[in-house]
């Protein structure tokens, strides 16, 4: 595809992904779900456009970030809660 790759870490696991994809798309290469709901259910990205907040993960130390709204950046540390 000729796209540049960036290296990020998801739950400590290194992953090379195309630059420009969202954190949500990057996580989905590796695993589902993204998080556990209040009642302990597994959840994953749902609306894809920043409305539903189902895809919240911890990005570079800050929890409750919408993975679908953030593009991957070199060196990014992502923690899911799945």
């Amino acid at each position: 595809m000729g796209m540049n790759q960036v290296r990020i870490a998801i739950d400590g696991q290194a992953l090379d992904v195309p630059a420009g994809i969202s954190v949500a798309a990057a996580i989905a290469q590796l695993r589902l779900p993204f998080r556990r709901s209040v009642g302990g259910q597994p959840r994953t990205a749902f609306c894809g456009m920043g409305v539903c907040f189902e895809c919240r993960v911890r990005i570079d130390g800050i929890a409750q970030q919408r993975a679908c709204m953030v593009p991957v950046r070199e060196g990014m540390q992502v923690l899911t809660d799945g």
């Binding site: 420009g20 969202s22 798309a25 990205a45 609306c47 894809g48 539903c52």
Partner: peptide, 30 residues
């Protein structure tokens, strides 16, 4: 935004909106 309506199982990973899937695909969702 999409009108997302509840049905049994709609919270399962793998269920998305229709426009939701389109948006995720364009973000690079596999």
């Amino acid at each position: 935004r999409e009108l997302l309506l509840p049905f049994p199982g709609w919270t399962l990973p793998g269920v998305t909106g229709a426009g939701g899937l389109q948006a995720l695909a364009k973000q690079g969702w596999p």
